[in-house]
Structure formats: structure tokens, C-alpha cells
Design a protein around this nucleic acid. Sequence first.
DNA 1: ACTCACCCATGACAAATGTCATGGGTGAGT
DNA 2: ACTCACCCATGACATTTGTCATGGGTGAGT
Lengths: 202, 202
Amino acid sequence: MTVRLLLADDQELVRSALSALLELEEDFEVVASVGRGDEVVDAARSHQPDVALLDIEMPGLDGLAAAAVLKVQVPACRVVVLTTFGRAGYLRRAMEAGVAGFVVKDAPSEVLASAIRRVMRGERVVDPALAALTLAAGESPLTARERDVLTVARSGATVAEIATKLYLSEGTVRNYLSAAIAKTSARNRLDALRRADERGWL
Amino acid sequence: MTVRLLLADDQELVRSALSALLELEEDFEVVASVGRGDEVVDAARSHQPDVALLDIEMPGLDGLAAAAVLKVQVPACRVVVLTTFGRAGYLRRAMEAGVAGFVVKDAPSEVLASAIRRVMRGERVVDPALAALTLAAGESPLTARERDVLTVARSGATVAEIATKLYLSEGTVRNYLSAAIAKTSARNRLDALRRADERGWL
DNA sequence: ACTCACCCATGACAAATGTCATGGGTGAGT
DNA sequence: ACTCACCCATGACATTTGTCATGGGTGAGT
């Protein structure tokens, strides 16, 4: 009995390469392949894959958001998230989205294949190194607003601009930024951004 | 007559996937595959590939630096750089490093295959969209020192820290930062960093 | 010789940023 | 009811950052 797969990755070349790799296994069959997050659900509905392999960084809809929608719309399809190593925060979000497997692109191909098979058997699969990293980063100490302010600041905006965009007073924005800097034990707005980003707190 | 290929990409999964993809073509043969830039030259020397397919982001040695070394040490081996779209500055550096082809990972697989074949015939191959982007970004207006200061600033350092690290006075650092901000027409240190990075000026 | 771009530096000033104390409002949990 | 965490805001303050004028030194090119 062959596993029907759906591939989603924004990089065309990576997508077709993965497809070629997975087709080498006799029990895998790639039945659909999309390049945007918002095409995932449609494709899953029409091709009824057993497992969807989703990259996180995608245009249209985030891979994790796509996973959440898929969970509801096509519950029979299990999700394996496939992404670049390092982004610690993703794992937590992925688990909340009901993802069954989490494989990093650094892993050798056998890991991916076995992850898919294990997910098919109903197991949950997570790269242990990544799990450790996530545990180490811990949960975000930032409040929703602090996160908002930081993410707007990321584009290089001044306090005044952030205030306008979020309908806040400048003082409030400064307070949130100050809190975020303190919580990340950073020296700077920039430093805070870097540190928060590293730990997946954004 | 088959083309002997060397693959270099830090992501194991991408590497083996690409390998699977390229092996589908009868005239291609992957003779070596490495995950670090500093392993490229050794591998090229022992396996004598016709074409080396290099990712840019790699530990040990940058893909472009590896290309430059390869050019000298194993001149018979032509280089095709394969990287993520968007980083405009890379193309210029790649051309200076004597790279024969430049393919983005967004491209469909036929583009990669044809690029490899054309490079084998002695042609130079560059994605036209990428070339346009690079032209649009233009050459960096930043002086060496301004670049230095910016790159140190990227880690979230304060002016004082940058000054210490580069053995400059604080005032000088501020001057360079100010110049960089002006030249990128940014509002901020952060903004300047973002803009310069986007255009490959770092 | 002269120009020009870049290197480095100072000092002074304006503007933005970061910190702190303080206080009022809301909703969730005990 | 009470606490607690979070929301939002103000005002005052110290510090940092960004800007500008100015000037000296170097090396490459004309």
C-alpha cells in the first residue's frame, strides 16, 4: 500500500528535487505539488494525499497556518513540516497546529522517509536536536503588544512611525520597546530584535 | 558523453534531493557531494567533475569563495552557483569569482539542466530576472569602512562597542553610520542595515 | 603639482531612544 | 472581593544616536 504525498515548497527546484528523491522509494507516490501556502488545501482536497509535506516559508499562507487549516478541512491528511534548522519557535507553533512530524532540511534523506512512514503509523516524529533547542529557548516572555511593536520595528521604523501604525502614543511604544529590550537582555532595539528572532519569539 | 557533477549544499536533504533529480537525466552523473564550502576543492581534485554546482550559504567557506579557489586550483571544473532568489549582490561577486552560471532555486528544473549543458558548451548562463535585479540595485555606494561599521552594527552593538571593536573613536563610527544612513536613504541604523542588505551591499 | 576619494578625528548640537515612576482600565482566575 | 497580568498613557530624565562643520593624513590618477 503506497503513501500518497503532497509537496509544498516555494522553491520550484527544491520541490521537484524532493519529488524525485521521494519517488525513488517504491512505497511513496507524489500526487500533488504546490508552491504557495494558500494552494495547499485545494490540492489536498482534490488529490486526497495521506501525508502533506509542508515547508514553512511560503508566499500566500505560512506553512503552519496551512497546516492548521488542513487539520480542519482535510483531517484525514497528516502533516509533516519540513524546514530549515534553527528557527526554534516554529516547533511550538507547529505542535499547536496539530502537526504530526517535524523534519529539518539538514537531516539525511532516510530520516525524512522514515518520518513519513512513522507518521503514517500514527506516531508523532520530531527531530530530537530541534526539540532540545526549543526547550532551551523556552517560552516567549513577550506580551502580544511587545511582539507587535517589535515586528513593526523590524522594518526599520522609528518610534513615531510605529506609534502611528499601531495607533499608540510614542511613550507607550517606547515603554513596550524598553520592556522587550529588558526581557531579551539586549542592549538595543536591534539587539532585542536579533535575540527574539533567534529564539523564535516573533 | 556524460557530464560529471559535484554538488555542494549545506542542507543534506536538499543535496540528496538534487542528486536524485539530476540523476534522472541520462547525461548527468553526480560524482561527489559535499556539505561544506571548504570540502569543495578537495572533492573536485579527487573526482575531477566537469561542473560544480555550489550553493552560496555554506559553513566553512562561502560558495563564492570556494568558486574563486576552484578557479585557480581546478580550472577545468566550471562552476554553476545555485542559490535563493533575491540576494542581488551575490551575482556581482559571482561574476568576479569567475562563475560560469547562476541559477536561482525558484527556477524550474529544466532551467537548471539546460544551464548545466550550456555551461558545458562554454556559455555563460544567468537568470535574466536576477540580472535585471542586480542592475537595478546598482553598485554599492558604501566605502569599505562604512561597510565594516554596518556589518558590526548588525550584531546589535552600540556605537561604543563598534568603536572598540574597530579601534576607532566613537565620533568616527557615528560619522560612518551617518554616511551609510544617508547613502541608503534610510531613517535608521536598522533601516540602513535592511536596505543595504537587500541590495547586496554588505 | 593638483585633485579627489577615502581614511580618521573632534566638538557641538538636535533629535531619537531607552528608562523609570506612576496611574487608570480591563478581564481572568482564586 | 481581590490579585495579577496585561493594556494604555504621561511626564521627566539620562543616554544614545544622528547630523554638520571642520581639518589633517594618505595614495591613486591627471
